[in-house]
Amino acid sequence: MKNNPKLDPLPYHDRKPHGYGEFYRALNATFRYIDGKKGRSHLEKFWEDHGKNYMAPIWKKWKAGGLDAIALYWRAFFAHEPGAEVKVTANQEFVDIRVSVCPAIKHLKETDWEIFPHYCQHCYFVSEAAAQQSGYTIRVDGGNGTCSQRFYPAQSAPEKQNLSDIRLAQ
């Protein structure tokens, strides 16, 4: 099932072209459960461990391929997410990801599901943990359905991420 690992930015593949939207509910429930039972610090650790460990096959390619590899990954990633409308561009300074329709928030809203308010923060914590492993860093601005995400080389990053720049989801 695996494609040529040198050319393919995704580590895993399914037979279906897109993921199943209702899995966003499971992610939403997982975040809510860990936060409710163990607190925010454990939820943040869950997200960070996901970025460091689960995403290891991904950030290793970022480390080897730089900003172009980061852009390649996110284009492939969002191409398989149901309902996503995202533009990914790269230059020599950063990768810019413009999310005009977040597939997760779109699905949860369309199905009238109670959204974990800090859902959008997972994008920052997961991606920052993966980025740090490969010498990069991310800044997220927006949330609740639309946002911008930029990956910079760690040494040329702008000021630290302010979590209040990430909107609550509702």
Partner: peptide
Amino acid sequence: MIGTYDFCAHYEWTFAWL
């Protein structure tokens, strides 16, 4: 972002993590 395309892999990883 954690997605749905590889969700089952993420889910299995989550069970082990929890």
